[in-house]
Computed example of a mutant assay.
Amino acid sequence: MRIAHYASDLWAPGGIATYVDRLTTAQERTGHDVLWLCHEPSDNHSLSERMQVVTPETLYAAVRQLDIDVLHAHRILPEPLPKDLTLLRTMHGHQGGCPSGTRYLRRSGQPCDRTYHPLGCMRMHVQERCGSCRPRKMWKHFKRIRHERDQTQTVLTAAVSMYVQQMMARAGCAIDNIVVCPSPAPDVVPYTAPPAHTPNLLYAGRIAPEKGLHWLLDAMAQLDTEVTLHVAGTGTEDHMQAAHSQVAAHGLEDRVQFHGWCDGPALASLLSMTWLVVVPSVWNEPAGLVPLDAAAHGRFVVASDAGGLPEYVAPEASALVPPNDTDALAATLTEALGDYDMLAAAGKRAQHHASVTFSATHTARVYEQLYAQASTNRSASDVLLAPRP
């Protein structure tokens, strides 16, 4: 099968690039021919033989010219949708159930579980700054969610978590056309126990308010002074300055190390030396690639009980904490760090979770079935639309 993965910003830093990379690798292992279509290559990636540059206007013509069997989109597709191509979408975020796509109340710093309603969400844009208050941009947000809902009516959609599926359904998307397909985990590495007598924590991700590093730093101030936090990630200049200022205010300069953005090998090196990984998001994460990275390396996870994260952590190698509850986070980390043997044993169970429940091979096989279903749906639509003799 010849598959094309499409997103306007396919290689922008973040979860979609990682997702597509893992899925593509698994699809190629099973004999599929895979191409990537995007509007322009990232500065960090040369234009490989696999990647083709398209525009919204030339996307569908390029798919026909390249003789693609399935166009697998990871962002909203350009309108109008073609009737002669087999289409499938993966919904990675909250764009199908939230106008701003954030599900995060910025002023109060809380996750948002509200059901989409034009007037209610418009009020939240103003009160909570969960989205832009500029009329033109706000209108663009509300217009986008309408397009997302319309596309879900006609294009088979894979949601990355049950949470995303439920929020889309509550917003009026066609639930019968949304299938949950979990994100793929990386390949499991040979298990190594965390280095004893060196209690390290790892935070991996963007440095932004909704990711909750500030919450973790508050909890760090309550932990044993031997505990070190390693931060793998970067953010805007303002967010980075706020993080460093908070570290200084807590007197944690010797216990928090910033490593900047880390590629695969650098992140693997940090995972090998850490006791557990913390995912302290204070927004509703749609899914959770970081817990899968941790599980593949045999590491325990402490995560916030929000969004799709509970669906991604290994049940016997994790703990969930209510978002923004600093005392609960500090107590959970203290308890876990106090039982090294438990962490080491849990790591092996976490690897089973990554290699079986969330294996990239399994995800690729599920998509094979979805591609076949999307093709069947298109064929049936062709029959219905064909002129009667």
Rank of each mutant, 00 (worst) to 15 (best):
E316M: 10
P291F: 01
P322V: 07
T326A: 07
F300L: 11
E311T: 07
A345Q: 15
R299I: 01
L309N: 09
A345P: 00
V321R: 06
P315M: 12
V313S: 13
V313H: 12
E316Y: 06
T334W: 02
A336F: 01
G298N: 08
Q351N: 11
A354N: 13
A328C: 03
A295M: 01
A331L: 09
A345R: 15
G347W: 03
L320T: 10
T332R: 12
D339Y: 03
M342Q: 12
Y312F: 13
R299H: 00
L292Q: 08
G307P: 11
D325R: 09
A330I: 04
D339K: 14
G338P: 11
P323G: 12
H352E: 13
V302S: 08
A303L: 07
A330G: 03
V313C: 13
T326I: 14
R349E: 12
V301M: 08
A294P: 04
T326C: 15
A350T: 13
K348T: 15
Q351I: 04
L329E: 02
V290W: 03
A336E: 05
A330V: 09
A319H: 05
H297F: 11
Q351M: 15
G338A: 04
L337T: 07
V356S: 10
D293H: 14
A296Y: 00
P315S: 11
A344M: 13
A295D: 01
N324G: 10
G308C: 07
A295N: 03
V290Q: 01
A328N: 01
V356A: 13
L333C: 11
A319N: 01
H352T: 15
P322D: 04
V290P: 00
S355R: 14
D327L: 12
L333F: 05
M342Y: 11
A330K: 05
A330Q: 04
T332A: 15
E316V: 02
A319R: 14
P323K: 10
G298P: 12
L333E: 10
S355N: 08
A314G: 05
T334S: 15
H353N: 06
S304W: 00
E311G: 02
Y312G: 05
A331C: 10
A306D: 02
F300D: 03
V321N: 06
H353V: 04
A344F: 00
N324H: 12
A336N: 00
M342F: 10
G347L: 04
V302C: 15
D339Q: 14
D341P: 03
V290F: 01
E316R: 14
L309K: 04
N324V: 02
L343T: 05
A350P: 12
A336K: 14
D327E: 15
L320C: 07
S304Q: 00
H297W: 12
P315K: 09
P323S: 09
G347N: 09
G338S: 06
L343G: 07
A344L: 01
A306F: 02
T332V: 12
N324P: 04
A346T: 02
A354D: 09
S355E: 14
D341E: 15
A303V: 03
F300R: 05
R299E: 00
L333Y: 09
Y312Q: 14
A295E: 02
T326W: 08
A314Y: 10
A350G: 13
L343Q: 09
D305V: 00
